[in-house]
Simulated assay, not measured.
Amino acid sequence: MTEKLSDETRKPLLAPLFDTGWALVDGRDAICKTFVFDDFVEAFAWMTRAAFWAEKWNHHPEWSNVYKTVEVTLSTHDVGGLSTLDAKLARKMDSLMG
């Protein structure tokens, strides 16, 4: 079962994500990032690859796509905040960019 990140685990899991452009969401225990691509097809292809992992891990992002930009917010609704699943999916999304 997934648990909300403890004070001890937050910094080591989240600090590397902040270095890649993720940020805390104001007013809630969540992280967000804006991904920008060359065009709509590239953005949608990335979303398709990310969706595969989200489904495999049963952890689905809040996201929206406008043309070549994808806005992503991650939080684990079952625990009311950030969990290791959010950090895992964020790392995967970053890796799918390269």
Rank of each mutant, 00 (worst) to 15 (best):
V25N: 01
F18T: 11
T9W: 09
T2M: 11
F40I: 10
H77N: 13
C32Y: 11
H59I: 02
D38H: 09
T9M: 15
A23C: 05
L96I: 06
M47L: 13
A23W: 03
A45T: 13
D39Y: 04
C32D: 15
F18E: 10
P12A: 00
D39K: 06
M1W: 09
K88I: 03
W46D: 02
I31W: 00
T34F: 07
V36P: 07
S64E: 10
M97E: 05
A50L: 09
D38I: 08
P61V: 05
I31M: 12
L14E: 05
N58D: 15
F40Y: 10
G81R: 00
D86M: 10
R91H: 13
R28D: 01
L96S: 04
D29H: 07
L96N: 02
K68C: 09
T84N: 07
K33E: 02
V66G: 12
A90K: 06
M1R: 07
L74G: 06
T76Y: 03
M47W: 00
L14T: 04
A87C: 11
R28Q: 15
S64Q: 11
L14P: 12
E62T: 15
S95I: 01
P61K: 08
N65V: 04
T84D: 13
T76A: 08
S75P: 06
Y67V: 10
K56A: 10
P12Q: 01
L89D: 02
P61F: 10
S95D: 14
F37G: 05
W57V: 07
W63Q: 04
R91D: 08
H60R: 02
M47T: 06
V25A: 01
E62M: 13
K68A: 14
E42M: 07
E55S: 11
K88F: 04
W53M: 07
V72Q: 02
L74R: 02
E71Y: 12
A50T: 12
E42R: 14
D26M: 04
T2A: 14
A23P: 06
D38Y: 13
D94S: 02
L14K: 05
L74E: 03
A90G: 00
V72P: 04
L74V: 10
W22D: 12
M47Y: 01
K56Y: 06
D29E: 12
E71D: 15
A30K: 03
A51T: 13
A87S: 12
S83I: 03
W53V: 12
A43R: 01
G98I: 11
N58W: 05
E8C: 05
M1D: 12
L82I: 00
R91N: 12
R10L: 12
W46T: 09
D38W: 08
G81N: 00
G21K: 03
V66R: 08
L24W: 07
F52P: 04
K4W: 04
K4N: 09
F40E: 02
T48L: 00
H59W: 08
H77S: 11
E71G: 09
A54E: 03
T73Y: 06
T20H: 14
D38L: 14
D38G: 12
G21D: 02
F40L: 09
T84R: 11
G27D: 00
A51P: 08
E62L: 10
G21H: 05
D26Y: 04
M97W: 01
L14Y: 05
K4D: 01
M1V: 11
E55Y: 01
T34Y: 03
F18A: 09
I31F: 05
V66T: 14
N65G: 05
F44Y: 07
D86V: 06
R10Q: 14
F40C: 05
L96Y: 08
E71Q: 15
T20S: 09
